[in-house]
């Protein structure tokens, strides 16, 4: 097992009445892509800001590269790269000017660490005299990532890098992160998209300031125990209500082109199909499936709600 590079113990943080983080315990291993997955307002940004020394925790302790986020904040700032959730570069400066500025204030030069950003920067280099404000979302991302990497950080923090950008740019971004991982970087990334969990080595589900589960995506799926079925056929709206009306059904959720149904006990798929046929006269197809990450998160959410 690799060393842990981020260690979080019993960390809590409140803003007035709102408990943004509630007794968080986490450990991130050196060289992994760690995903913090949860909806808006779950506490993702707060946690990342504490780890990047931008916020002070109320209680608890966190270390990054073995340094305390409160006491050793100056050292940590030299060792981490950070890409905030909103585009935070100078929009009135060009691509080249932004990169040069951030290289200089991080006390390095573009030349020194060019190998790190080469793959990413080359894609936007043809536009290097264009002002950052005039770039597309995907290009902004690449510039921001280049700037966050230019001082060769040990840990890279990315706060919702894929929010608001289209699916193509998202795929590209994950490709880049994987390459960076191969160069030895530890990557701590937050996202509201469940399906991006599979891109991470390990993920933590976060909801209302609490960590619901931490594991590898495979581990999370493997530990899912409820029987789950994919249902197709008929119109979604009537079907989902018909399914929920059945006694054997615990929950029914829309899922892509199907409805995912969990039941209180294991059943034969035909049993469900027959019940719907009898009640509603609808012809549906039912098959037992393996849960995916999102099913797991939903199930965890239900556990804390009920």
């Amino acid at each position: 097992m690799k060393n842990s590079i981020i260690q979080i113990e019993q960390l809590s943080k409140s803003f007035g009445e709102v408990r943004a983080l509630d007794n968080i315990n986490l450990s991130v291993r050196e060289g992994e892509i760690f995903g913090l997955i949860g909806p808006d307002g779950a506490g993702k940004t707060t946690l990342i800001r504490i780890l990047t020394t931008l916020l002070l925790p109320d209680t608890g302790k966190a270390t990054v590269t073995g340094r305390d986020v409160v006491r050793d904040y100056k050292e940590i700032r030299k060792l981490v790269g950070y890409m905030p959730g909103v585009f935070s570069l100078y929009e009135d400066l060009t691509i080249a000017e932004n990169l040069k500025f951030f290289a200089t204030i991080f006390q390095t030069t573009i030349k020194e660490n060019y190998h790190l950003i080469k793959d990413i920067y080359q894609q936007i280099e043809p536009f290097k005299d264009r002002r950052a404000g005039q770039l597309s979302g995907g290009m902004k991302q690449k510039l921001a990532l280049s700037c966050a990497l230019i001082h060769k950080p040990e840990v890279l923090f990315l706060d919702e890098p894929t929010t608001g950008i289209d699916a193509v740019s998202r795929v590209e971004l994950w490709d880049m992160l994987k390459k960076l991982k191969r160069m030895g970087l530890t990557i701590f990334v937050s996202t509201p998209y469940m399906n991006e969990a599979s891109m991470c080595d390990r993920v933590a589900f976060i909801q209302k300031g609490e960590i619901l589960e931490v594991d590898s995506p495979e581990g999370i799926v493997a530990s899912y125990e409820e029987p789950i079925y994919a249902v197709e056929g008929g119109r979604f709206y009537q079907l989902i209500h018909a399914l929920r009306a059945l006694e054997m059904v615990k929950a029914a959720h829309l899922f892509g082109e199907t409805i995912h149904v969990t039941t209180y006990r294991r059943i034969a798929p035909e049993e469900l199909a027959r019940a719907i046929k009898e009640r509603e006269g609808m012809d549906i197809s039912v098959r037992e499936i393996e849960a995916n990450i999102e099913d797991c998160f939903i199930s965890k959410l239900h556990q804390i709600i009920h």
Binding site: L54, R77, L89, Y90
Partner: peptide, 13 residues
């Protein structure tokens, strides 16, 4: 306001 302060803060400046 623009959020650039966040990056300046995280830098050793």
């Amino acid at each position: 306001e623009k959020g650039t302060m966040e990056i300046l803060l995280v830098s050793p400046l």
